[in-house]
Design a protein around this nucleic acid. Structure first.
Length: 336
DNA sequence: CGCGTTTGACCCGCGC
DNA sequence: GCGCGGGTCAAACGCG
């Protein structure tokens, strides 16, 4: 069944896929390398279309560090403006593959609406900070995304959420819903991995787990295979920025979707997508957690928050929220 | 019983 | 080399 659905996914459009990092970010000055790369890409893409590790690295470096401190500094002003205007999440800093958001907590004893399910694996009191820092890891065993949550020392209702790593998976259930049932909303709150039993975390210990390798024969029912993320760069079109995606043995990525495909599934209009409750799980989440876009707007979610249990621990985990429904997409150029 | 949280211990990088 | 602090591990515990 799910396999059937997968088969209806249009094939990736390599022209979009392969211009991802370079053209998008205007890195045009490494000509020879890019030419060679594009030749190789063309060859390889006859077999499989998707970004390479180098694409990802390139995109990541451009995304998180390429803007550089200057841009970040320049953006600070607009960020402040944004903050005061909307009291939304604010990008506090970014480095390497980390970025920190400063967000208001939700008064409703809220839920972490970032579209992913996190598992708390540690809490640590931080020097010179009265508030402990909580450590969360994405429950998806293929995913190495992590986040740290701590209360701001000066503002009790503010959380500093640091995201590290990218989600190497996609909220696939949403994708399927998108694809087939544009009218039927997914599970409330953007629950992503709950359509089936949550996979167990892989045992830890020893060397760092290898990058996720996708079995070509992986069942279509695996909901976490969707890589690639799409960015909306403030303009009117989707931008296929990069793909932190599951990797095959040959280093290539699986399941990349083109701009057109994404538009087909989500509609190009970002506003539409944001305000369409059907679309609360998307590729964008692979970069910017859902909380950034639709924080605290659904109280019906039961799966995206680490708060659910008997926690007697002090800082209620990420009751993340903003007073505006979404972070203005103007924030994205600052992130990427 | 399974899953998630709690929490003390441990590991590791960094500065002195 | 040592101490400190941040990050992670993993056993214990609680909840549904």
């Amino acid at each position: 069944m799910a396999e059937e659905e997968l088969h209806q996914v249009p094939p990736p459009l390599e022209s979009v896929v392969w211009r991802s990092s370079g053209d998008l970010f205007g890195a045009a000055d490494d000509g020879p390398r890019r030419r060679r790369e594009s030749m190789v890409n063309k060859l390889i893409s006859t077999v499989y279309s998707g970004p390479t590790i180098s694409d990802i690295e390139s995109a990541l470096s451009l995304s998180f560090t390429g803007g550089g401190a200057d841009q970040l500094a320049d953006d600070d002003a607009s960020m402040d403006n944004y903050t005061s205007a909307s009291a939304g999440g604010v990008l506090m800093s970014k480095m390497e593959n980390k970025y920190t958001l400063k967000m208001k907590t939700c008064g409703n004893g809220g839920l972490a609406e970032d579209g992913y399910k996190w598992r708390k694996y540690g809490q640590k009191s931080i020097k010179n900070s009265p508030n402990p820092r909580s450590y969360y890891r994405c429950t998806n065993p293929r995913c190495n995304a992590k986040k740290q949550v701590e209360r701001a020392t000066d503002e009790a209702d503010t959380l500093l959420v640091t995201y590290e790593g990218l989600h190497l998976h996609y909220t696939y259930s949403h994708f399927l819903l998108q694809h087939h049932h544009q009218q039927s909303p997914p599970a409330p709150g953007g629950s992503t991995t709950t359509s089936s039993k949550k996979p167990k975390l892989q045992p830890r210990g020893g060397p760092a787990p290898p990058p996720p390798i996708i079995d070509d024969d992986a069942p279509a029912g695996d909901l976490d295979l969707q890589p690639s993320f799409l960015l909306h760069g403030g303009g009117s079109s989707w931008q296929h920025a990069a793909a932190a995606s599951p990797r095959r043995d040959d280093g290539r990525m699986l399941g990349v979707f083109s701009q057109q495909e994404a538009e087909g599934y989500y509609g190009c209009g970002f506003v539409d997508r944001q305000h369409n409750s059907n679309n609360n799980g998307g590729l964008l989440e692979d970069v910017v957690p859902l909380l950034v876009r639709r924080p605290c707007c659904s109280s019906s979610s039961t799966t995206t928050t680490p708060t659910s249990s008997s926690s007697s621990s002090p800082p209620p985990p990420p009751a993340l929220s903003t007073t505006s429904p979404y972070i203005d997409m103007a924030i994205l150029p600052n992130i990427f």
